[in-house]
Design a protein around this nucleic acid. Structure first.
Length: 802
RNA sequence: GCGGGUGUGGCGAAAUAGGCAGACGCAAGGGACUUAAAAUCCCUCGGUGGCGACACCGUGCCGGUUCGAGUCCGGCCACCCGCACCA
């Protein structure tokens, strides 16, 4: 009899052996076929690992382990995205240096991950807060700056008056500060920006070359928000000046009955003297400026606005004078900050026109524009539109665009929803921005040989009243000389956002200790692109987009060999609490993975998280479910006592073995880990039914289970004397011909209703099958007329009768 | 409002390409073993009716296509996740 299954002992044993054997180190032998599997590196928070972490980690660990068994040189690395606010806040509260906090958290995280037996190559560990790492983050920033893609500008930021701190958009929840709950206000500040908008088209096109799950592609496309239309100039009556608008519906130009400029539009100041109700207009502008973005969105329901009296525009096609209004539903940050309003065919314009009694002129027939705006572009026919009358919308669009261009009234134009990336944080715990400001030379980049620009030691990390970074108080550090003219200059005191370090970390893994470059060209050429990258859906329009941008930029600079960083991107679902709600301390439904490992073992936790449900969907935790997986592994363990002498597969299970190899192999590749485990459970039940298992069957079973439950399988491999290491064996192969049974059981139907089954040889002809089927149905067919006989090989026989 | 997703037993979920709905697991019930319990093993397990072989109903709702629909088409409903006045 075997000993009792004791996961705690055997898991520790094998984790140690793997470490000593450097079992999972990627080699620099570039002649072998490579596979780069990547999971998002965690932010090492004080709470430690969450049961959500192991879900994606186990999934790609399975892929990585399977690839090694298939003969690939596998890179499966791990590291730490360690700059960030929670660490800084903890440091402030407990008066410990954030570096120390980070070190402690990393140590804790690492030991937790090691307890789960992941096959990470720990020799390649990276940490974004390591100066040897952020050296290259800063280097990339300098490249961006030199390419004109980093610039400083005045921007409104989210300001928490209670915490006295500038917040990132992600830290604003429902218009309030994430931590203290105070209402966030807008405050102007100069900020570093990255011109991601220059890459909008490249980022869009790149999506056609990669194998991302569809919802990720869709979300990125929507976020980039490409739209095509035209810019059109409207003359300002009584001047030589023109007001330029952007529209996606130039075809409706005859229906433009008024114009609207954003409250921040320069025309208001420019024509201040002509505007007869200037006081009202300025009052409106002030009101709009005070509103936070959140308030502006909240008030979206009710349109507001003021007419710019004394200012009239001219519709370039009708020649009619039309009024000009200002309203905060027009945004300065999109298009030209001004629109032509076509109330008959735009819902917002319609609402606005109804409220202020402006004329509504129908130019596309098909709806009732007195009732609602008619926005359909598929079915409408142009009316009241001069030369476009009778055309369909698409045709009219082309015609009017050509006409406008010919007459010099407008040009085709593409716009994007994507905005430039706000790249400054007024915080201490981030990468210093390697720029100095010189009175004479302006913003001057640090010479590359002065990198890394180290984060200085400060007395206090507390943010200041002025909204400046704590670094601003470090006058010794701030005051420096200009690298350009040698005159007095000041260092930039804002730091980079957390998204900086994570935008290129996958490059560093390929050559993590290089001090001459972010990685050697050889290493990059061999390892890139990442073959499979899994990460959270919440990063789709943040980290994933940012890192694609940086990568594409580095490609354009000749630093990296591929246009796209990640060949394949998948996303896992969240693990919810036992009650189906998101796990959180306040809900009291948090499960600590350490407790699960201690009570049930790492293999059980891994197996359970794979079995819990479809990988890409949210799943609720169930401790009973964990127990079920432990029971499964106990039953696997006991196979030791059931092994027969037979080396190969037994006749009885041969087909089943080949089927299972096929099923598990495919499921591990296609995110169907739950059904892969189910297939193994099912096969195990067969072994129990048979009362014994051959050595060949058990070997195969252990190999198939090994990527999911590496410790128990390795231990059994050794105990049974199968030779060598389980993880070093070749992945099992199946023969397609042997996955099919000699006989098939067919469903028998009469008029599509189940009436039994019939078993026939696979080779039986249609006639033989139908004869056997009808014989089986016997009396049920007595006294009826057969209208039709349907036979789908391997599936069903359906007799249609009257 | 727009975009994406989901809806199947008491529960978590399966179901190539339209072909035996509920694999696998949990919970539950029954049995074996045990002085007893736990553990383990075996059996049952969508609903209704029937002693019964069996019949009828059943994949959010309504309709359609088909010999046959969880799957395809049309029209709804509910929930979840993004984005949100983007002209």
């Amino acid at each position: 009899m075997s000993n009792a299954y004791n996961p705690n002992t055997i898991e520790k044993k094998w984790q140690k052996i793997w470490e000593q054997e450097k079992a999972f180190a990627a080699t620099d032998d570039y002649s072998k076929p490579k596979y780069y599997a990547l999971v998002e590196f965690p932010y090492p928070s004080g709470q430690g690992l969450h049961v959500g972490h192991p879900r994606p980690y186990t999934a790609l660990d399975i892929v990585a382990r399977k690839r090694r068994m298939e003969g690939y040189n596998v890179l499966f690395p791990m590291g730490w995205d360690a700059f960030g606010l929670p660490t800084e806040n903890y440091a402030i509260k407990n008066k410990i240096h954030p570096r120390i906090v980070t070190e402690n958290n990393v140590r804790h995280f690492k030991s937790q991950l090691q307890n789960l037996g992941y096959s990470f190559d720990w020799d390649r560990e990276v940490n974004t807060t390591d100066p040897k790492y952020y050296h290259w983050t800063q280097w990339i920033f300098l490249k961006l700056f030199k390419a004109g893609l980093a610039y400083k500008t005045q921007m409104p930021i989210n300001w928490c008056p209670s915490c006295k701190i500038g917040l990132a958009n992600e830290e604003v929840v429902g218009g309030c500060c994430e931590r203290c709950g105070a209402e966030v206000v807008r405050r102007m500040r100069t900020q570093w920006m990255l011109k991601i908008t220059d890459y909008a088209d490249k980022l869009l096109e790149g999506l056609n070359e990669v194998d991302y799950i569809e919802r990720v592609k869709t979300q990125q496309r929507n976020w980039i928000g490409r739209s095509t239309g035209a810019e059109v100039d409207f003359a300002i009556a009584g001047t030589e000046d023109k007001l330029r608008v952007y529209t996606t519906r130039p075809d409706t130009l005859f229906g433009a009955t008024y114009m609207v400029v954003s409250p921040e539009h320069p025309f208001i100041d420019k024509y201040a003297e002509r505007i007869t109700n200037l006081a009202d207009v300025l009052e409106y502008r002030d009101q709009a400026a005070k509103k936070s973005d959140f308030e502006r969105a909240e008030m979206a329901k009710e349109k507001t606005g003021v007419e710019l009296k004394g200012l009239r525009a001219v519709n370039p096609l009708t020649g009619c004078e039309i009024p000009v209004w200002t309203s905060d539903y027009v945004l300065m940050s999109y298009g030209t900050g001004a629109i032509m309003a076509v109330p008959a065919h735009d819902e917002r314009d319609w609402e606005f026109a109804k409220k202020f009694g402006l004329p509504i002129v129908e130019v596309v027939a098909g709806g009732n524009v007195e009732e609602a705006a008619f926005t359909d572009v598929e079915s409408g026919i142009m009316v009241n539109s001069g030369f476009m009358n009778g055309m369909e919308v698409a045709e009219a669009k082309k015609a009017v665009t050509a006409y406008l261009e010919e007459k010099g009234l407008g040009t085709p134009k593409v716009n994007f929803k994507l905005r430039d990336w706000v790249f400054s944080r007024q915080r201490y715990w981030g990468e210093p921005i390697p720029i100095v400001e010189c009175e004479k030379c302006g913003y001057v980049p640090l010479p590359e040989d002065e990198l890394p620009l180290l984060l200085p030691e400060v007395e206090s990390y507390e943010p200041t009243d002025s909204g400046e970074s704590p670094l601003a108080a470090m006058t010794d550090w701030v005051n420096t000389t200009c690298p350009c003219c040698g005159g007095p200059a000041k260092r930039e005191t804002d730091t980079m956002p957390q998204w900086a370090g994570s935008s290129w970390y996958f490059l560093r893994y390929t050559d993590p200790k290089n001090d001459k470059a972010l990685a050697s060209p050889e290493a990059l050429k061999y390892w890139l692109p990442v073959d499979w990258y899994n990460g959270g859906m919440e990063h789709t329009t943040l980290h994933l987009l940012y890192s694609r941008f940086w990568h594409r930029f580095l490609y354009d600079e000749g630093v990296v060999p591929t246009k796209e960083p990640y060949q394949k991107r998948t996303s896992h679902g969240m693990i919810l609490g036992e009650n189906g709600e998101k796990m959180s301390k306040s809900r009291g439904n948090v499960v600590n993975p350490d407790d699960i490992v201690n009570e049930f073992g790492a293999d059980t936790l891994r197996t359970y998280e794979m079995f819990i449900g479809a990988f890409d969907m949210a799943a609720s935790w169930s401790t009973d479910g964990v127990r079920g997986c432990r029971k499964f592994l106990e039953r696997v363990w006991k196979l030791q006592d059931m092994v027969s002498e037979e080396e190969g597969f037994t006749k009885a299970l041969e087909t089943r073995m080949h089927q299972t190899i096929k099923k598990v192999s495919q499921d591990y590749e296609s995110l169907k880990f739950n059904t892969a485990i189910a297939a193994l459970m099912s096969l195990l039940n067969e072994f129990y039914k048979a009362g014994s298992v051959s050595r060949g069957e058990l070997k195969t079973f252990l190999l198939l289970l090994n990527p999911a439950a590496p410790h128990i399988t390795e231990e059994m491999w050794e105990l049974l004397g199968f030779g060598g290491r389980c993880y070093l064996q070749a992945w099992p192969k199946y023969e397609e011909a042997k996955t099919v049974e000699d006989t098939v059981e067919l469903a028998l139907q009469i008029n599509g209703r189940m009436r039994g089954t019939v078993t026939v040889p696979r080779s039986a002809s249609k006639e033989e099958v139908l004869a056997a089927g009808k014989a089986q149905l016997g009396e049920r067919l007595a006294g009826v007329t057969i209208v039709k006989e349907i036979y789908v090989p391997g599936r069903i026989v359906n007799i249609v009768v009257k």
